[in-house]
Design a protein around this nucleic acid. Structure first.
Length: 1216
RNA sequence: GCGCGCGUAGCUCAGUUGGUUAGAGCGCGUCCCUGAUAAGGACGAGGUCCGUGGUUCGAGUCCACGCGUGCGCACCA
């Protein structure tokens, strides 16, 4: 039979954790934990795949910490929670990284380098930081199955995506469209909305006000405003709002106008009918009436309004564009309108209701090639004309963002560089009315920060997500978002303004779009797997991959479904005999990759049908808020489209699509016929914790030249000349410490607890190193000290807990522990023991309730409170019981069992949160029974609370007792009476007599806490206390309403004690209140009032919420002597420690003093002092005077003494 | 510009359905206790709950507007 081993208080948590990690690894604890629950109900968790081609930072730690705690909790609660890791591997970031490595830039250079070697490098590059990621994952204690991670470039993953895309394609949900996209000209690719959003930056662009002269009167011009002068050569329309009123303005001489009789000196928005002003040069402009004033201010010259004209009257007028590259050639062309008649297609004023008077001139230059709204206008205009006579798209810029030969003046010039040239020319030609710099946000490429994006017409593949807007909103409404406001706020808004998903990317490293086109008919076919492709008739091109593989056997097989190998594969067209089917060149947006993860991680539906059925949808996911439009959206969109019902409007068109297919092609509805069929809402996840962003905190020297991560470092280096900063985490600023350093300094548990217990997870969090450090003593160390206390004494006393149990042991549940012959029923133990175990059980109930509703923050607060109760009340109050010399005393054994059981339960309670410390405590606590019990706390069931143990009333009472002690100490402090000095008496006056009897019965504790001989409780009148009767607003508010202020005043005015007497005698208080309508009487019963106590002035008293504690401060000779004796004990104990005595060493004591009072006190309490200090001899010498300067002199109370102690023997017993 | 958060002590943050004296930790100050001791604890100072207006008997909490701040979104022409 072995016992416990004492554990030191100065634990090095990081080292401890490394040991635990090794233990988990050696014993496959994670695997065992899954195995144990293999028949349990499932709790489905999805890992949002991180990208491993960058180093993990503290934000990833938060995500991983939150992701870990719920699966661990659920597993302990009996659920089977698989945790499949995953890696996001495709996309532009990888390509950019490789380009940097190769020192190349842009698509043409990639193609020069060769797509094949480029792809191979991409595939290798994504694993660059794999080890760091795996190390972080493991070190922080995130239990997830890394060995079977899903990887987005794997063939089976890609084939799942292909299957889903085929399903979309076959249902007509995938289409090729001409759209204005945000185009990265240098990179030669469109960017997704999410990517564009990341790259907005504030820049100053040229802002020009340009005249568009009307053909009917060239001296009259529509004035337009644009910040993209380079789009002017491609001008096609000018738009006005037909509902706005426009003003025709001239430019009067400022002086002439000022001299005018009744003319205003500056522009006016009223028509000046009396003074038809003459423009200096005879020219006039048209602007929105509402903007005349602001325009005049901007131009710093007066504008005179000659007349007004409605927008609708302007519509249809022809104008001459400011730059003539197409106008001169085509101005004479006309097109036939569907409605009859003819019209010039371009350079016409058109109506557009999006034109506003928020800024500019109320007239908008339209270059449909370079603006989405402009493009829509063109499409509307096209509809007006008969086929073939509609306006073409005018575009003077090529896909590299350079002017084409259409525009010889600027041919080959990058559009942004042309701005300056164009502005100069406009000025020279007199069409520029005003120029300024305009500061606004403009998107840049998020990877190549110097490259501005331009809007550009591009052929691209789209997914008809707009058709599913309602379904997605419906699904969204079923998701439990934490915080709640995400649902209707950020995410809901995003869904409501959904636009079709621009899916394709004209890039290289990504999932190839599985669509093959017939070279003759342009008809298309989607392919759901590589095998399906191989079975196509007349297939060729697969040898390209085989050759490459033969030449380099190292190539991973997955590359064969990537560019360029897949592009080589062609087959016979089913649409046109003798023609070939060739794959389109695009790859897809990598957000689609991650969003397909719910099924693609299993390779579904090509395999693993059971796994998918079992693991869809997820019960729980969590990522940071930046994933709203990323993974949260892509998952929802894809699952809704692939597994949800097809909207009615679409179902109709599906029949037409089917009708057009070759006869051997599969019909569209195969998706609906899978073994899954339609799924219940919500999918694909039920609960989602949206994490806040993490900001960094750091310090800088005032000259901003030095940066520090802690205040101490800043102080050391700069004295007071430093400032605190906070902001985005930035690799280049190095304003945060790497997670690894945090682990080495403080440990993973400290970091985890900091994340869980410091704020709700959705709050944005300031990554503060000091806060991480501080979370250690607040919780981890406090618990560890209690644990250490237990082991020290248990070892000393030979308490070995469950070692004497002969029955089978497993998890050391209370039932198992109760088999021990020394374990007494809880009901038989002391109040304190019952209280502690009740607190543990109550906390267990609370933690379970909180965790079941995903409130990890709340759960941590409960746990923290519990540990505080254990440390600062239970152990504090029970210390003497462990010191007792009678090792077999029932009380002592009870104390051990109670503490032991509490620690055991706590180790299980904290296991999901701080898995290392939990494990460490569990293993030490189970040492006496070794291999009989589960080897890891993580293999145990989560504790459940025995309701019969929970005594909430006892909890309330103990809290009151703690409050009385606390208030008493406050009173002592006030009276400057240190606790070592015994007092004769305290009087405690309670506001509420309910608990008085109980307190009286248990006042030993308070007596000892306050070091008093007697405690008197009362709740009646007291000379020290004033009573204040206050209304119970919560009860009375609804009843008396507006009379409440009067009632409040009446109670405040009345004497509290009298009111209370009334209440005691009559059971009610009757008040008469004056109202506007006269007097009104109100009866208050006991529940309508609250009694508050206030200590009267002049007493050593202190007040709390429900009680007042008054000290009897008079000291008798006896009390003083006892105080001295306790001082002496303290002095001797210090000395013992100073000379290195062991716990049990016996000593002899000699005290020399000049004070007879000291000598008398010590002699009168000799036995007490000897007992406390393990002294076998205590001599006091009284001398005339002590040598004043002797450094060995110490203060005993008010007098100096000389203290000598000598170790005489060692003993096994600590106290006797 | 629009949308969504946030704004509470020197700092980092809690604050449940509106309710009486707004809390915690750190830091600071004063002190206590001490064989859990390279720990532990108490007490104190410190608050215009961003501002203004409103609803209400009653607002840190609800509403409106404004200011500051963070994030997201674009018809930023």
């Amino acid at each position: 039979m072995t016992g416990f081993q004492a554990v030191g208080t100065n634990a090095k948590f990081p080292e401890l954790e490394e040991g635990i990690l090794q233990f988990w690894k050696d014993n496959h604890i994670y695997k065992q934990s899954l195995e144990l629950r293999k028949d349990g109900p499932s709790f489905v968790f999805y890992e949002g795949p991180p990208t491993a081609n960058g180093l993990p930072h503290p934000g990833h730690c938060l995500t991983r910490a939150i992701k870990d705690v719920f699966p661990r909790y659920k597993t302990m609660r009996g659920y089977r929670c698989l945790r499949k890791a995953g890696w996001d591997t495709h996309g532009l970031p990888v390509e950019v990284e490789v380009c940097k490595e190769l020192g190349i830039h842009g698509k043409s250079e990639i193609e020069k380098y060769g797509i094949e070697p480029f792809i191979q490098r991409c595939q290798q590059s994504v694993w660059r930081y794999m080890q760091e990621w795996e190390r972080l994952t493991e070190r922080i204690g995130f239990w997830i199955d890394l060995s079977e991670a899903y990887v987005t470039y794997h063939q089976s993953y890609i084939e799942s995506i292909w299957w889903s895309l085929k399903s979309l394609f076959d249902r007509g949900l995938l289409y090729r469209g001409h759209k204005i996209v945000w185009w990265w000209a240098q990179g030669g690719t469109a960017l997704s909305a999410g990517e564009v959003g990341q790259g907005y930056r504030e820049v100053a662009d040229p802002s020009v006000y340009v005249k568009f002269p009307l053909e009917e009167d060239p001296s009259l011009s529509l004035l337009v405003w644009t910040t993209t002068p380079w789009t002017l050569p491609s001008n096609q329309f000018a738009a006005v709002n037909p509902d706005l009123t426009y003003a025709i303005c001239s430019f009067p001489e400022p002086t002439a106008l000022a001299a005018g009789t009744d003319a205003p000196s500056t522009a006016t928005s009223n028509v000046n009918a009396n003074t038809p002003a003459a423009s200096v040069d005879g020219s006039r402009i048209i602007v929105a009436q509402a903007l005349v004033q602001s325009l005049s201010d901007k131009l710093k010259r007066p504008l005179a309004i000659d007349s007004l004209i409605s927008g609708s009257e302007l519509v249809g007028k022809y104008y001459k564009p400011p730059m003539d590259y197409y106008y001169g050639k085509s101005k004479a062309e006309v097109g036939t309108l569907k409605a009859g008649g003819q019209q010039r297609p371009s350079w016409r004023i058109v109506p557009a209701d999006f034109v506003t008077i928020d800024s500019g001139t109320g007239a908008v230059h339209m270059a449909p090639a370079f603006g989405e709204a402009d493009y829509d206008v063109l499409n509307q205009q096209k509809l007006l004309f008969v086929d073939g006579e509609a306006p073409p798209l005018i575009c003077a810029v090529d896909s590299e963002g350079k002017f084409t030969s259409d525009c010889p003046d600027y041919q080959g010039i990058w559009v942004k560089d042309a701005d300056k040239l164009i502005v100069r020319r406009l000025r020279e030609e007199g069409s520029l009315l005003h120029f300024e710099q305009y500061v606004h946000d403009y998107p840049f490429c998020w990877r190549a920060e110097a490259d501005p994006l331009i809007q550009y017409p591009r052929e691209s593949w789209f997914v008809r997500t707009t058709q599913f807007r309602d379904s997605m909103l419906e699904n969204n409404s079923k998701i439990r978002w934490m915080p709640e406001h995400i649902r209707d706020g950020r995410f809901g808004n995003f869904l409501a303004s959904n636009v079709d998903w621009a899916l394709s990317r004209e890039r290289y490293w990504g999932t190839p779009l599985p669509i093959w086109v017939c070279e003759a008919t342009s008809k298309m076919d989607a392919v759901a797997s590589y095998d399906e492709l191989l079975k196509k008739p007349g297939i060729t091109g697969t040898e390209v991959w085989l050759k490459a593989k033969a030449a380099n056997p190292e190539l991973v097989e997955d590359l064969k479904v990537h560019k360029p190998y897949i592009d080589a594969v062609t087959y016979d067209s089913p649409f046109s005999k003798g023609s070939r089917m060739t794959r389109v060149t695009e790859v897809i947006d990598c957000w689609y990759d991650s969003g397909a993860m719910p099924f693609a991680q299993w390779g579904y539906p090509h395999k693993n049908h059971e796994q998918f059925a079992d693991q869809f949808p997820a019960d729980f996911i969590s990522e940071a808020i930046d994933q709203t439009r990323g993974w949260f959206y892509s998952q929802l969109a894809i699952s809704t489209m692939v597994f949800g019902p097809t909207p009615k409007a679409l179902a109709h068109s599906l029949e037409q699509i089917d009708a057009q297919k070759p006869t051997d092609a599969p019909k569209q509805n195969f998706v609906q016929n899978t073994d899954q069929g339609q799924r219940d809402f919500p999918h694909p996840f039920k609960n989602c914790i949206v994490l806040g962003l993490m900001l960094a905190e750091w310090y800088e020297s005032k000259d901003a030249k030095q940066r520090f991560l802690t205040e101490e470092e800043a102080k050391d280096a700069c004295g007071k000349d430093y400032v605190s900063k906070s902001g985005k985490m930035s690799k280049s600023l190095r304003n945060y410490r790497s997670p690894n350093e945090i682990f080495d300094r403080f440990g993973a548990d400290a970091l985890r607890w900091y994340f869980y217990a410091n704020q709700p997870p959705w709050n944005s969090i300031l990554y503060s190193e000091r806060a991480i450090r501080d979370s250690i003593p607040e919780f981890l160390l406090r618990l560890w000290n209690v644990f250490s206390f237990f082991t020290i004494y248990a070892e000393m006393d030979g308490f070995s807990g469950p070692a004497d149990i002969s029955a089978k042991l497993d998890q050391l549940t209370p039932e198992e522990l109760s088999q021990s012959p020394t374990y007494r029923p809880i009901a038989d133990r002391s109040e304190l023991d019952r209280w502690m175990l009740s607190e543990v059980a109550a906390a267990t109930e609370d933690v379970i309730a909180k965790m079941d509703s995903f409130d990890s923050y709340g759960a941590c607060q409960v746990i923290s409170q519990l540990v505080d109760s254990l440390s600062n009340w239970y152990v504090r109050r029970s210390r003497s019981r462990y010191w007792s010399s009678d090792k077999k005393s029932t009380d002592k054994i009870d104390a051990y069992w109670t503490l032991y059981e509490s620690l055991l339960t706590i180790s299980k309670l904290i296991a999901p949160f701080v898995p290392f410390m939990a494990e460490s405590i569990w293993q030490q606590l189970t040492k006496p029974v070794g291999s009989q019990v589960r080897t890891s706390v993580h293999l145990c069931d989560y504790p459940t609370a025995d309701a019969s143990i929970v005594d909430r009333q006892l909890g309330v009472r103990m809290k009151l007792l703690r409050e009385i002690s606390s208030i008493g100490r406050s009173a002592r402090m006030e009276a400057k009476l240190k606790v070592r000095q015994p007092l004769s008496r305290v009087e405690v006056t309670l506001a509420d007599a309910t608990h008085q009897t109980w307190l009286k019965d248990h006042d030993d504790i308070a007596k000892e806490e306050l070091n008093v001989k007697e405690i008197q409780y009362s709740s009646g009148s007291s000379p020290y206390v004033e009573y204040v009767v206050q209304p119970n607003l919560r009860k009375l508010g609804p009843r008396v309403g507006s009379m409440l202020p009067k009632l409040k005043a009446a109670l405040a005015k009345a004497d509290g004690a009298t009111l209370l007497d009334q209440m005691t005698t009559n059971g009610k208080i009757s008040l008469t209140l004056e109202d506007a309508n006269g007097a009104k009487s109100i009866d208050l019963d006991g529940e309508d009032i609250l009694v508050r106590l206030q200590a009267k002035e002049g007493w050593a008293a202190a007040q709390g919420h429900g009680c007042v504690v008054v000290l009897a401060t008079a000291l008798t000779e006896e009390l003083i002597q006892e105080g001295i004796a306790r001082d002496a004990v303290r002095l001797i104990q210090d000395q013992r420690k100073a000379v290195g005595c062991d716990f049990a060493d016996r000593i002899e004591i000699g005290i020399t003093t000049a004070s007879q009072a000291i000598a008398d006190a010590i002699n009168n309490h000799k036995a007490f002092i000897e007992g406390e200090t393990l002294a076998t001899r205590l001599d006091v010498h009284v001398v005339e005077a002590l040598p004043a300067e002797d450094p060995a002199l110490q203060d005993l109370g008010e007098y100096p003494v000389l203290l000598v102690i000598k170790t005489v023997s060692s003993s096994a017993s600590p106290k006797s």
